[in-house]
Design a protein around this nucleic acid. Sequence first.
DNA 1: CAACCTGTAATTTAACATGTTACAGGAACG
DNA 2: CGTTCCTGTAACATGTTAAATTACAGGTTG
Lengths: 143, 143
Amino acid sequence: MQITSRFTIAVHMITVIDYVDGKMPVTSRFLADSIGANPVIIRNVMGQLKEAGLILSSQGKSGIALARPVSEITFYDIYKAVDCVDGTGLFHFHENPSMDCPVGRNIHGAMDERLQDIQQTMEEEMKQISLADVVSDVRKANA
Amino acid sequence: MQITSRFTIAVHMITVIDYVDGKMPVTSRFLADSIGANPVIIRNVMGQLKEAGLILSSQGKSGIALARPVSEITFYDIYKAVDCVDGTGLFHFHENPSMDCPVGRNIHGAMDERLQDIQQTMEEEMKQISLADVVSDVRKANA
DNA sequence: CAACCTGTAATTTAACATGTTACAGGAACG
DNA sequence: CGTTCCTGTAACATGTTAAATTACAGGTTG
């Protein structure tokens, strides 16, 4: 089990956009080369980031820009944008526990809230990390 | 992306074993019926729980027992036992960032530690939840 | 209008989780 | 001792999903 690489791809994308800082137009092909993934994947992730209000892009126009400074974009924003975990939650519950069994008919109720707590703890941690942290490290490494 | 249902299956298994409390022999077929999954899946999970030292079972003998009280078994123990997340971590990193790009060749270094922190935070939370909590709720629901 | 871009649909490929069948090997019990 | 029931695995089938790929519609710029 792993969280889709679209998450790290999206972080990579935003980092590149901020790093380039308008000095040259950033296109899906340019990003695809830096990331090492297919341009269509990039454009799909672009669509998700755009829908989430994190980047600005429009059909026909070349160049992608950030909708707000990297200091105001967290890992959680991206995680939500690229839909790493759907509405059914981080944990996959077995679907057919027996209702004839005293454990089977109550296991869901006994676990659900605790599983949700774990997921929420992870998500809160993701809110503590901003893209400015990543960009800062990348700049330092190239200094 | 979701954590394999073998995790909730394993929790269910241990809860049943504790709930039945030796009043009848617990077999893979019995567990499969309560859980609503295939007996072979159950036996495979049994193997993982046994290897992790959480349950006692042996070939030929009927009946599965817990190796230690449920108060000393945490969600984390089970999560580790059933191998929800392998050595490469919770996050799937895109594998071919360009080494010719100043961002591409440093993005891994800039993200790795932070991704590991997130995973660790989640795992610490799982250590706080014991199977006694789940068993207690199930008993209450049947009282 | 030519070149280049975003946005998307449709299809393929690969990997993986789960289900299923089959059987080997040990234990319990009459 | 032999029947029965169990655990422990191997091998294969099935279903689902992520990612790559191909193709093209529609907008922008010069």
